[in-house]
Design a protein around this nucleic acid. Sequence first.
DNA 1: CAATAAATGCAACGATGTTGCAAAATGAAT
DNA 2: ATTCATTTTGCAACATCGTTGCATTTATTG
Lengths: 136, 136
Amino acid sequence: MKATHILQHHQLKCTECRIGILNVLLEADAALTENQVKEALHNKFDRTTFYRSFKTLVETGVLHSITLHDSTLYMVNAGENAGHEHYHFYCSACHKLLCIHPQKKENIALPDGFKIKQTDITFEGVCKTCNKTEKR
Amino acid sequence: MKATHILQHHQLKCTECRIGILNVLLEADAALTENQVKEALHNKFDRTTFYRSFKTLVETGVLHSITLHDSTLYMVNAGENAGHEHYHFYCSACHKLLCIHPQKKENIALPDGFKIKQTDITFEGVCKTCNKTEKR
DNA sequence: CAATAAATGCAACGATGTTGCAAAATGAAT
DNA sequence: ATTCATTTTGCAACATCGTTGCATTTATTG
Ligand SMILES: [Mn+2]
Ligand SMILES: [Mn+2]
Ligand SMILES: [Zn+2]
Ligand SMILES: [Zn+2]
């Protein structure tokens, strides 16, 4: 997926900052913080610009975020992530936050009277990769 | 449950600030932010003292917290909450965050290789009370 | 009540969220 | 390619929150 295509599809101007953010996140194998992206781009942009870019990208649905352990992590809504509800998995070994798309959606039962509009599920544990490494 | 009993049980000094925080949270019917508790106590204590009190109370397991919509909410680990994993429900009508203890624990299936240590589940929707009110 | 350890209040600083505004960049139209 | 309207950017400024050091006050124990 190309950064410029994503931006155009959302009717957003293709600015250097937005393209940079998207490229970093598209290549990442896990969610990243604003500062991690900023550093990956060698602090090329002002922090206000960064702040506003992330805000716009989340509001328009280009990115989604999750807050974990007092820091906010961002991911691109591309491919499987686009629109679909999914789980998040934080690996306490490699400290990566991963999006997980399960085969089947679970249906959690709540007491009578509660109307559920959205469900957020976050796991903490050891990821597939780290488990393999440990077993060797 | 008495605030002083809880503090003594955790080998914490019964200071005015801690007792105040606990009393406010014990009487609340939903989770509260640090500032909400602070205001309930008429800003009697310095914000540093407040900050350190919450930190201590969470670290020792007297309270637990959840971050939702960029704000951190606190609840007492008393009664049903004590030790037990439970769900959290945010009502978009009354804006309350509630702890929910389900009858049976669901078991969510993840792809092979992922070892789960902890699961956090947060719902968003309309709570029991607000649903009743709406239907009238 | 006296002694000791812990908690508090205050000052200070860093990180982060947020806004206003002038300068620069973008995208569309010529 | 040049022009123009609109959006984005960078910078300054301010608010809030997290965090620490340190002197003073408080809680607990004997
Ligand atoms: Mn995700
Ligand atoms: Mn809870
Ligand atoms: Zn891992
Ligand atoms: Zn409600």
